[in-house]
Design a protein around this nucleic acid. Sequence first.
DNA 1: ACCTGAACACCGTTCAAGT
DNA 2: ACCTGAACACCGTTCAAGT
Lengths: 214, 214
Amino acid sequence: MTRRRAAPKQLTPQKIARAALKVADRDGFEAITMRRVGAELGVPTMTLYGYVPGKQGLLDLIVEQAVDEIELPTAEGDWRLRLKELLCEIRRVLARHPVGIRMRLDRPIISAAALRTLELALTILGRAGFSRRAAARGYRTLFLYTFGFAAFGDPRNAEETKRASRTVASSLPPDSFPAVRAAAAEIAETMAGDEQFEYGLDLLLDAMAATRTS
Amino acid sequence: MTRRRAAPKQLTPQKIARAALKVADRDGFEAITMRRVGAELGVPTMTLYGYVPGKQGLLDLIVEQAVDEIELPTAEGDWRLRLKELLCEIRRVLARHPVGIRMRLDRPIISAAALRTLELALTILGRAGFSRRAAARGYRTLFLYTFGFAAFGDPRNAEETKRASRTVASSLPPDSFPAVRAAAAEIAETMAGDEQFEYGLDLLLDAMAATRTS
DNA sequence: ACCTGAACACCGTTCAAGT
DNA sequence: ACCTGAACACCGTTCAAGT
C-alpha cells in the first residue's frame, strides 16, 4: 500500500485569511498564531509560509478580509443620514471583528478598499456644500469618534458592563465622589449601546450642520 | 573572603511599576516582559514575583502609575474651558504613555484615581446646569473621542504621517477616488496635531452648549 | 524542486533546588 | 524561610533534512 500524499487543500492567501479571521473572532487577537491557523486548516504550520508572507502579512490580509465586509451606502440624499449609515456600518463591522480595532492601533489602514469609505464621506459632504477643509476635518472627527467608541465604549457584554459600572459607582466614598455616586444610574446607561453611540454621532453632526449654516 | 549578598535593592511594587513604565515608553507595550523589567532593575526575573502578583498585576500597577500623572484642573469658571483642559491633559498623558491606550483596550480603568476625572467632569457639567443624564452622556462622548484620537489619530511622527498621507491620496486612481485626490492636502492636515484634536473637541462642546440653551 | 519537521531564541510561570 | 535557576509549554521563523 503506497502512502498517498494528503488530498490537495488548494490553499490560497484568502482562504488562510478567512480561517485566521475565524480564529480571531472566536478566541481573540492573541489567538492568531501560525500554529493555530495551520491547525484550523488542517495543515502543518510551515505550509502557511508557502502562501502568506509571514505573520505580519497574514494580519494585513485579515484586515482586508474584514474591510471587504463594509457595505457602503449611496452618496445620494440627506447627508446626515448617509454619514450616519456609513459610520454605523463601520461600527457594526468593528463589533463583528474586533481584530480590526487592534490592528488599526498599530498602523492606519490605507488599502483602496478601506479608502473607499473616505471617498464616500468626502463625496457626501462635498455635495452638501462643505468645503474640502471642513469635510476632511469633520469626517476625521466622526471617524475617530466611531473608532474610539468601538474600541473603548462598546463592551462585548453590554448589560453586565452596565451592572458592574453601577456597582463601582455606588460603592465609592460619598465624600470624595458625590457627583459619580449621584449619577451612578445615568453613568451606567452610557457604558454601552446603540443609543449612546448615536447620541455622540448626532452631537457631532449637529455641530457640523451648525457651522455650515452660520 | 566571604561572598556577600548583593546590596538590598529595596524593591517595592511602585519601583517595579516605574521601571516597567520606563521600558514601555522606550520600547513599547510588547517590550513589557518580566525578564526585561527584571533586567532594567538589575534583579533576576523571578525576584519580581516577590513584590508583584504576576504580569497582569504589574500591568495594572503600570496604568495606575500613568493615571497618577494626570493633573486635574479646578471645577471653577467656564465649563467649556475646564473640560477642554481636562481632556487635553488626558490626551497629553496618553501621548506620553501610550501603554495606557493599549491597556484600556482590554478593560476599563476604574481605580479611584482614574474616577476622579469622571467626578470632576460631572461636577463641572452639573454646575453649568446640565442634567445628570446630559452630563453623563456628554462627558462619555468627549471621553471616547479623546481616547479615539489618542489611539487612532495621534501618530508618533506627525510630519512624516502627513507626508505619507499626501503621497497615498495623490497616487490613487483619479477615476475611482476623485474626492480623496482633490482633498489630499486637506486630508493630510487632519492626520495629526493639536489643531485637529481641538477642532473635534470644540465641535462636541459647541453641540453640548446648543442643547443646553435650546 | 518542493514540502515541512527540528531547532533557536523568545515568552510567563511553576516548582524544586540551593542557601 | 527565603530566594531564584531550571524546566515546561508556548510563540515566529530559519534552515536543513526528507521526499
